[in-house]
Computed example of a mutant assay.
Amino acid sequence: MRSILSTSASALGNSATSGRPLATGLVVTALVATLAALLLPVQLFGETASAAGNTVTYDDDGGGTVHTRHGPLTAMDRDFVRKVRLAGLWELPAGRQAQARGRTAAVRTAGDHLVAGHTELDRRSVEAGRTLGIALANQPTPEQQGWLGQLNSAADAEYPRLFAELLRRSHGKVFGLIAMVRDRTRNAMVRALADRANAVVLDHITVLEKTGQVDFDALHSS
């Protein structure tokens, strides 16, 4: 910065011979350009770091992109369809359980929404898997089975909090993948599934939060 100011002073000192208005304009332009060059990398790196912190990933099955009558089908597309199916395999029974065990109307309502939403999404994901040739799971993952086990063994007093916590966290994680798929996919069938999943998952997030059992501090620190 000292060299920049020295250059500016020198240019201003010579302005009597070259025309003060012109010299002053050149100096101001040079200063602005220099400061912009100094600040721009900082801003760009800041944006890059922020974007990197919010990166959404998917599981690559190594199958590459295949062509279907509904458009190209990528590894991201296949992973999304599989995850929609997996979500229904544990969130549907969790919703049915909430309908039966919910001690408040809000928890039972959340259960109703989970059952309705995942019944529809499960049907759509199975249809997409069959049409697009995507192998789908028929039972929850060990982790999902563990969550169902926690709900099954929870005491009545503990159940509403655990239900809201597990289901809200799960829906929050998949929400980013849905947005990425909707933005990037070129497959019409996958896009339609993402459209519907976006609406259903947002609805589920909303009704789970309305139970009053979601600990937002714990949710975003995990």
Rank of each mutant, 00 (worst) to 15 (best):
R184C: 10
H67Q: 15
F175I: 06
L177T: 08
T24D: 06
V181D: 00
A137R: 07
E120G: 10
G25I: 08
P93K: 03
V115G: 01
G149P: 07
R186S: 09
G62L: 04
F175H: 09
L12T: 10
V27E: 01
N54V: 09
R169V: 13
M189H: 00
V126C: 05
S221W: 08
V32I: 15
G46V: 04
D215R: 06
T29R: 12
V174H: 08
Q97H: 06
G146L: 08
N14G: 14
A11M: 12
D122V: 14
G129T: 09
H220A: 11
R20H: 15
A33C: 11
F175N: 05
D217Q: 15
A194I: 02
M180H: 10
I4E: 04
P140R: 03
N187K: 06
G63E: 06
D215V: 05
V214D: 02
A23R: 08
G117R: 01
P140E: 00
A51W: 05
L166A: 05
R2M: 10
L12R: 11
D217R: 14
G149K: 12
D217S: 14
V32H: 06
G88V: 03
A135D: 15
A154Y: 00
G176Q: 13
D60N: 12
S50H: 12
A23P: 02
V56E: 08
M189W: 00
P72Q: 05
V66P: 02
H220I: 15
H220K: 08
L39N: 04
R85Q: 14
L166C: 04
A106D: 09
R123S: 15
A106V: 10
L89T: 05
Y159M: 06
R123G: 15
I134H: 00
V42S: 07
H220Q: 13
L31N: 11
M76T: 03
T109D: 06
V84H: 02
V81S: 01
L86S: 05
G129N: 07
L44G: 01
V190D: 00
T185A: 08
K210Q: 15
L148T: 04
G111H: 01
N14D: 14
P93H: 06
I4H: 04
T29G: 15
L162G: 02
V214K: 02
V66I: 14
R69K: 13
L148V: 07
H220G: 14
D156Y: 01
P142R: 09
D61I: 12
S10N: 14
V126Y: 04
L219H: 14
Q145G: 07
E47R: 13
D77I: 05
S221D: 13
D217L: 12
R169Y: 13
G63W: 03
G19R: 06
L202C: 11
D183A: 13
L114W: 00
A75H: 07
T57E: 05
N54S: 15
E47P: 04
T55L: 09
V42A: 09
L136K: 00
S170R: 08
L92M: 07
L22I: 14
T185N: 02
Q43T: 13
Q150E: 12
H113E: 11
R161K: 10
V200T: 06
H113C: 09
S221G: 12
A98E: 00
H118Q: 07
G62D: 07
G13P: 09
V190C: 03
A30R: 01
